[in-house]
Every structure is written in structure tokens, then in C-alpha cells.
Design a protein around this nucleic acid. Structure first.
Length: 544
RNA sequence: GGUCUCAUGGUCAAUCGGUUAAGACAUCGCCCUUUCACGGCGAAGUGAGGGGUUCGACUCCCCUUGAGACUACCA
């Protein structure tokens, strides 16, 4: 009775009952095995790769089970919130081609029957459940000033079950109606705390999709259900929303394992059925000391999902890399199905890796190279231009003016069954093909080769006629080289290298450096063709 | 400190008690193309340590060690 009165005193305006709320959220009609899961980001203005990883696991779980994937915005912490942050969430999801079944649109319309899908619009619901818990004596108002930094109060709370003979209780845990009323009449703000029924000795068990059954110490903290601004922190919102919205598997980072016992007790207090969790491993980096550490926004640019846009790494490459981490069977599947869409890959929901992986940018680059190698010259041009329009305006302008030329060099060694694989992202192309824009320098010619280089280039330039085939081009290099004492027979060269100035490979290297400034480049004949006769002749006319 | 999680080569990993311990990336070598690549072939490299259980353990149990995470009116 007393509790009932306190609840009424605390929440005079809350008329909505929990029964009424439940009536609005009917149970989902699911077929056997169908998963309902969600992405629940906080609108902080960026998406961390760890969140994205978690989202992608959720997404795949629902995808392979033909389930429901929804987006819930967790904007309960106004301090961390950033203007326009929700747009960022949608932008990233869209760019990666992640399809959401239920969400709230930017102009506030809920798609789906379990909304609102934005937590700040659900406070009436949270308050109704908080009121119910207070009325049942399972929660209580706390009038302490925020406990951040208040170590004495925190200590007291920690010790509340040890020192009960001293009555060193939590100062607010057992307030009478009159005492509460006094505080309220004083105009004091209050938080709502759970009145834990545990004493610190109990154990709980819960099921985790990745780790199996986990047993841990039960919660014994009177944690906060409603902050003194009336808004719930994560735990309370999670319990209510995921129950109401019919989430069947809660995917979240393994940093939440420690707080799961809190959530278990909360579900119990609320009379909810516990959910299945899937605590995914945290993505790590190798620290300077050689140890793993959580990948962090502060030190690792690749922790922010926008990094991949800035670098121009294909989104499918990122997704495929992540999918390979989630389930290593994907890599094998990919080799067997090189051209299939990754969405066709199916895996069991119990096959998710349990180990925190070190994020491997080199491997990502390899996947990315494969993805890009499958593009036609026109497709590559389009993605490059697309990227440039966002991150390199002057390049974009140049690309539009020189479309045919750009496509001509982007297409080098691209067609055929074995395309080269050396472009890992859009941001590197300009540098990679810098010789298509500018005359190269001759830095790559070694000092000791200087005279040979000059001698060969002089002769070659004089003999040069613009070739009409790769064979013709090569024949001339060979002829000139042979005339100067280079080996035209590789076997002869290998047998007695000291007899010759070098082999034809060396001669090719000279031409390559003269034309491109590098020892590595795509097929020279194709480059010459793109460059045109005039430019080619001028580049051949060099001296180191 | 307490609680929890994890532990196969440099990295990602397969094996769900029976074995020459897959494969991918990276590294190195060879072959192909008398060029660069691509591709093909090959090499090197792993079960943290110690106890059990078992005919037999990388696989199950325990201890140690190491690493990570959590321990807020943040998520």
C-alpha cells in the first residue's frame, strides 16, 4: 500500500498501464527459427567498427533465417548526442546496402508496428514500467545527488549487505512515504533504482549464442532505472524495448557480458521472459607493446566507418572481410563461388567465432583488390569518379573532362580471365597511375646502371617507331638491346651472364622507368598506347 | 583488487577424442610471360605451460600463465 502511494506520488502524470502498453505490442507471428534482431546505435555522429560488426552479425542472423531486422535509435544520453547523427546512421547503412525492415524515418514516421523506434519518444513507456516496479516495491526513488565521484555514497551502496547491523544502508533504499514526500515537496529531483533482491552471494546463468552457458555472480546493485531527468540508461530501456519489440536475439559487444546479470534481474523483476544473447568478440588492434587492445576511434582511423568511404574501399570488400571474421566458412565458400553475391552465403547461427580478432588491413586490401579486379574499366571509372566527387573535387573535374583517356588506362590488363589485382582502393589510383598525369622522374634507375640506361635509351629512342601491337613493341626492344650486347636468348644469359650487358628484362626495365618512373607497372605497350605517340616519344628522350 | 571472457603458425582460422594438424592473407623460392603483374607449383612457420580423464587429446576436466573486457544517473 505504502509502495503504491509512493508510486503515485512520484508519477502522478503517468496514467498508462503496463497492460495497455502490452496490448499495443502484440507478439510477433514468427515461423520456427526466424530471428528478430536489431541495430541499436547511439547517435554520436559516427559509427564505430565494433558497432558495425555487431550490426552486421545481427543483420546476417536475420538474413539467413528470413527474420526481421530493425533499427532502434538509442538517444537516451543527451550529453553524447550530436546534431545530424541519425543521418549518419542511415547514410552508412545505405552505403553498405544494409536493408532494414523496421525503423523511424528522418521525418519521424515509424515503419513497422513496434515503434516508436527512437528511445527518446518512449519515455512514457519507461515511466509506466518504472511506476509499476515502485508500486510493487521492486524499485525506489533515490534523491542522492548524482553519484559520479561521490565515493562515500557508492561505498555505502556496495556494503549495504555486509553492514546491516550498523544500518549503513543505502540512504534512499527504504524511505517511507512521508520521507519521500518531504523530498518531493522540497522540489528535489530523483532517480529510480532497482531494489535488488540479491545479497551478492547468488549466481545466475544465462545463455549466450557464442559462448554457450555463462554462469556469473548475480547482480547485487541497486542500479539506476530512470535517471533524474526521467530518461532510462541502457539497461532499463534494453529490457523493455527488446521485450516489447519482440527481439529474439540480442547481439551486442562482449563488453556487455559483465552487465548481463543486471539485465537478467531486471527482466525477472519486470516479469519478462529472458532473451537469448549473442555477445560478439571485440575487434582489436595490435598495440605498441605487442598486445591486443580494443580498436579505438582515437588512435585508429579505421575504427570509424567513414574511413572506408574516405579511402574508397569498396563496401562489399569491407562486408566480405567482416563476414569472414564472423564465420570463416565464408572464405571457403567465396573461393568456390568467386562471382556470387555474398548474400547467398548461409551459415548456422551457432557458427560465430568467439575470439577477438586483430583487424587486418592487409587482408582487407587483398579482398578489396579482388573485388576491384572484377570491375570493368567503365565500372572502375564510375566508382573512381564517384569517390572523387566526394573527396577530390579537382580530380573529379579532370576525370569528367578526360573520360575516354581515363577509361583507356584504367582498362589496362583488366579484361581477360586473369585481371591484375593491384588496386586496393579509390584513393590510391591517382598515385598509382601518376605517370598517366605527369612525366615521371628517373629515381628508380640505379646509379650503377646510369650509363647503360643512357646508352640504351639513346639507341631505343632513335630506333623507335610507334608500335601497333605488343609483339611489335617488344620486338623492337629486343632488337635494340641485342645490338648493344644484351642477351636476346635468356638461356644463354643465364648460363653466362657476365658475357652480356644484361638481358632483355633489363632493357624492358629501362623503358618502363623512362615511361612510368617505376619498375612495376601494367603492360607497357598498353600504357604507350594510352599515352599516344607524341608523349611517348618525349618520355623516351631522357637522360639520367 | 573483484567479476567475466578468450588462448592452434606473423594475422584470420579448420578440426566438434583417432592425426602428414585444412585453407586464406603476409613472407620466401621456383615456373610461366625473354618486361611488370596475374596465374601455377613449392618452402618455412602453430596446438602457452603443467597436471589429470582415456587404449588414444589440439579437442573433455583442473591448475598456472598470458591477454582482453567490465566494475557510471555512458552505451
Amino acid at each position: 500500500m505504502e509502495y503504491q502511494k509512493i508510486a503515485e506520488l512520484l508519477f502522478p502524470d503517468v496514467k498508462l498501464t503496463c497492460e495497455e502498453i502490452f496490448a499495443k505490442y502484440p507478439k510477433r507471428n514468427l515461423k520456427e527459427g526466424q530471428v528478430v534482431s536489431r541495430f541499436a546505435p547511439s547517435p554520436t555522429g559516427f559509427i564505430h567498427i565494433g558497432n558495425f560488426f555487431q550490426m552486421f552479425i545481427s543483420y546476417n542472423l536475420t538474413r539467413v533465417s528470413d527474420g526481421v531486422f530493425f533499427l532502434r535509435i538509442e538517444d537516451t544520453d543527451s550529453k553524447r548526442e550530436k546534431e545530424g547523427a541519425i543521418d549518419v546512421v542511415f547514410e552508412i547503412l545505405n552505403r553498405f546496402g544494409i536493408k532494414i525492415d523496421e525503423y523511424q524515418t528522418l521525418d519521424g514516421k515509424d515503419i513497422g508496428n513496434y515503434g516508436p523506434y527512437v528511445q527518446s519518444q518512449r519515455v512514457e513507456i519507461y515511466k509506466a514500467f518504472a511506476k509499476k516496479l515502485v508500486a510493487e516495491g521492486k524499485a525506489f526513488p533515490c534523491f542522492c545527488k548524482k553519484t559520479e565521484g561521490k565515493e562515500d555514497v557508492l561505498k555505502l551502496r556496495e556494503n549495504k549487505f555486509q553492514n546491516d547491523d550498523e544500518k549503513e544502508y543505502d540512504p534512499c533504499r527504504d524511505l517511507s512515504f512521508e520521507e519521500v514526500k518531504k523530498h518531493i515537496d522540497n522540489g528535489e529531483k530523483f532517480a529510480i533504482r532497482l531494489k535488488t533482491k540479491n545479497t551478492g552471494k547468488e549466481r545466475v546463468k544465462f545463455y549466450d549464442l557464442i559462448k554457450g552457458e555463462i554462469e556469473a555472480k548475480a547482480n547485487a546493485k541497486d542500479f539506476v532505472l530512470l535517471k533524474n531527468d526521467g530518461i532510462p540508461p541502457y539497461a532499463f530501456a534494453h529490457a523493455i524495448d527488446d521485450t516489447l519489440m519482440g527481439t529474439t536475439i540480442v547481439v551486442r559487444g562482449e563488453d556487455y557480458i559483465g552487465s548481463t546479470p543486471m539485465h537478467i534481474e531486471l527482466f525477472e523483476a519486470l516479469g519478462f521472459k529472458p532473451t537469448v544473447y549473442c555477445h560478439n568478440p571485440l575487434i582489436c588492434k595490435l598495440g605498441d607493446n605487442g598486445n591486443k587492445r580494443k580498436i579505438s576511434k582515437r588512435y585508429d582511423p579505421e575504427a570509424d566507418m567513414r574511413y572506408y568511404f574516405e579511402q574508397g574501399i569498396p563496401t562489399t570488400a569491407v562486408l566480405e572481410y567482416l563476414l569472414g571474421i564472423i564465420n570463416s566458412g565464408f572464405e571457403i565458400w567465396r573461393m568456390k563461388n568467386p562471382d556470387a553475391d555474398f548474400n547467398e552465403f548461409k551459415f548456422g547461427i551457432n557458427d560465430i567465432t568467439a575470439v577477438a580478432p586483430i583487424f587486418d588491413l592487409v587482408k582487407l586490401a587483398d579482398i578489396s583488390k579482388n573485388v576491384i579486379s572484377r570491375l570493368s574499366a567503365e565500372e572502375l571509372y564510375d566508382s573512381w569518379l564517384n569517390w572523387a566527387e566526394e573527396f577530390d573535387k579537382s580530380l573529379a573535374a579532370w576525370l569528367k573532362e578526360n573520360k575516354a583517356y581515363a577509361i583507356s588506362f584504367l582498362g589496362i590488363d583488366r579484361s581477360g580471365a586473369k585481371p591484375r589485382k593491384d588496386i586496393a582502393n579509390m584513393s590510391m589510383i591517382k598515385e598509382y597511375f601518376s605517370y598517366m598525369f605527369f612525366r615521371p622522374t628517373l629515381d628508380e634507375v640505379a646509379e650503377e646502371d646510369k650509363d647503360k640506361f643512357n646508352e640504351f635509351m639513346a639507341a631505343y629512342q632513335k630506333a623507335f617507331t610507334f608500335p601497333s601491337s605488343n609483339e611489335e613493341w617488344f620486338a623492337l626492344v629486343k632488337e635494340v638491346a641485342g645490338g648493344l650486347g644484351y642477351a636476346t636468348d635468356n638461356k644463354a644469359y643465364k648460363a653466362n651472364p657476365e658475357v652480356f650487358k644484361g638481358n632483355v628484362a633489363k632493357a624492358c626495365e629501362f623503358v618502363r622507368v623512362a615511361i612510368t618512373g617505376r619498375k612495376n607497372s601494367p603492360t607497357l605497350y598498353e600504357i604507350i598506347k594510352s599515352l599516344g605517340e607524341k608523349e611517348t616519344r618525349e618520355r623516351l628522350n631522357v637522360k639520367k
